[in-house]
Design a binder for these strands. Structure first.
Lengths: 358, 358
DNA sequence: TTGAAAGCGTTACCAC
DNA sequence: GTGGTAACGCTTTCAA
């Protein structure tokens, strides 16, 4: 390995000077600077990041903690995060939690030992032990996909997304709606809110509880089946599911019940994974601006690392958009986009320093 | 940060001794060892891996270079690799190449600068610049998903996989077959070989050229459409596709042509991603033993890192198996497994130090 | 068995 | 402006 000293020796300067031209901080005479640069290229010198880390600057390593890359939604995020990070000279250390708090803790521990400069995390819950560790180790952290009261976070406005879906289904003429997910979901709130605003009593929108953890856990189908077996289920033409997996389970199950889609039943998913594109019928789904999210997340981290930014946690709340496909259209037609405020495409992204939703 | 010196001070020993009990190499008196361990837990000491790396031992970092995690097949591998690595105390630095050689090179460069102990790579081609760099930097490397003449590699026997598919389709009564992929694919060879062994002339099996790079590139459909438009395509009931994406494209396109599956047309994919499970009709696909592959890959790396193992490249060739689903069954039925040698499940994995296939 | 001390490759502080 | 030098936290001689 060729070091800073080798360069120094060849260029007849001190290691300190080499370091200086490398970091471009202090002034170095034009003459020496050229000599140093000359030898750097000549010997193909590459700074040893490990040494740089040790002296306490930075590791150029970012941790990414996610429940499961097998989930295509997370896979997309991870990919974009890696690419975005790379542009800033950072590499990504990937960790899985399987949505288990103890594993999350272990993984976070390992990241801390590795001196990562920052972490992007999709936590189990806002107060997960992993999050706590990160905070007490004072490692810049940004939470993605969820809001966090005391950390930087970037996510989509789930509440608004839910409202968009309600608006869409209502405009398709459906007045009997159902939600597949958890009662507390912000999507569900938005969904109900918008329904109410259009004269559909929120109390008449059942929430079919779906415990969705990972790709593996597809006991979803039995739940869905139970719903379609019920009187209520038989009469509901408008279904909104917390994500594409569940939506597809609904779609597939509905087919077993001879309910045609589109036609008898409309289903809308969330996340707009490519599953929505590939499946037949194709699935209407709420798209999150992933590229934007990844960009913002890394940007937030960079700011913290540069020591900029107040201590206030920054909440970046982006606007989702509904991508309409066959599963919710009354007639055959090409896919199109839709959003609450306008049928045209939203300038998908808006930052507020605070806000509700999620 | 609490260091080795802190422990030393508290335990009334020298830093060297602390290091010794930590690494368990040299003898340390029972008394001091206990004292040190006591303080280690008491102060919650965690070794600084960066410092350890600098002194030249190891970084505990493994690079994973893959074309695209958005591909569920790769996502699964990455996940398993990470989990497997974690068990051995390693973390994973994830890199994307987008199947582009120059990006691969850049990513590999960054891994080398980071002093990763080893790399698991899905290379663009055997002689990609990334691979070359890795070799000249003498970083232990294992190639997964492909064979490599001069590096450790672990992959499935594609040739055998292709043969299994042929056997399966033939046993379903199809004698007119087609392959969607590239002529040189080992799968295709195996497919033809087995067909020939059963009296179906390989020359009568067309290879519909599909250029599949990533999830994004789904111009696949037009190619597929062109095939179904042809006389040849209209009469082919048995299709084998190089992966699940292409298989699904075939399935979906076939539906547009009113070709019923199962019934008029059978389609078999490769990789057995969850897409195969989720899609309707569900897709018969060749499964790769991913867990086993990840395990072997990490194991190979560990061996190299321990300085064990001859200099011979090790080829670990595992056996795939066919998971039969609706897309290739003549009647409704539950999913089942199938393999060339036996209808029962294969002891899925066999190592040879060399072998053809792929 | 144990301690002192010399690095590992950089950065940063302090003189000159 | 520039060079010496002391860290950073750890491992590993080399003596004792």
């Amino acid at each position: 390995m060729i070091t800073i000293k080798d360069i120094a020796r060849h260029a007849n300067v001190s290691p300190a000077t080499v370091s200086r031209v490398l970091n471009g901080k202090a002034w170095v005479s034009e003459e020496k600077r050229r000599a140093v640069n000359e030898w750097i290229t000549r010997l193909g010198y590459k700074p040893n990041q490990v040494a740089q880390t040790l002296v306490g600057t930075r590791s150029f390593l970012l941790g990414v903690v996610i429940t499961d890359v097998s989930n295509p939604f997370f896979a997309d995020i991870v990919k974009l995060l890696q690419q975005e990070a790379f542009l800033s000279g950072y590499a990504i250390v990937l960790c899985h939690t399987n949505a288990a708090e103890d594993i999350e803790r272990q993984q976070v521990d390992s990241l801390i030992r590795r001196q990562v400069d920052g972490v992007v995390i999709v936590p189990c819950r806002a107060e997960s032990p992993g999050i706590r560790k990160l905070r007490q180790a004072e490692i810049p952290t940004v939470v993605v996909t969820q809001q966090h009261p005391e950390l930087d976070s970037v996510c989509v406005d789930h509440n608004a997304g839910g409202a968009m879906v309600a608006a869409h289904l209502l405009s398709a003429g459906h007045t009997r709606l159902a939600y597949f997910g958890k009662k507390q979901d912000a999507k569900f709130n938005g969904f109900r809110r918008e329904a109410a605003a259009n004269g559909v009593s929120p109390d008449r929108i059942p929430c079919v509880k779906v415990d969705y953890d990972s790709v593996e856990t597809i006991d979803v189908e039995s739940t869905v089946r139970r719903f379609f077996d019920s009187e209520e289920g038989r009469q509901t033409p408008g279904v909104f599911a917390l994500n594409d997996f569940v939506a597809l389970a609904a779609l597939n199950t509905a087919a077993e019940y001879r309910r045609r889609t589109p036609g008898d039943l409309s289903v809308v998913g969330f996340d707009n994974t490519y599953l929505a594109r590939i499946h037949r019928p194709s699935l209407t789904s709420v798209a999150q601006p992933l590229q934007e999210m990844a960009h913002r997340a890394i940007e937030l981290l960079r700011r913290r690392l540069a020591g900029q930014g107040d201590n206030e946690p920054n909440l970046t709340l982006l606007q989702p958009r509904v991508v309409v496909r066959r599963s919710s259209s009354r007639e055959a037609g090409t896919d199109s986009e839709y959003s609450l405020e306008d049928t045209a495409e939203l300038p998908n992204g808006a930052t507020r320093s605070t806000g509700e939703g999620n």
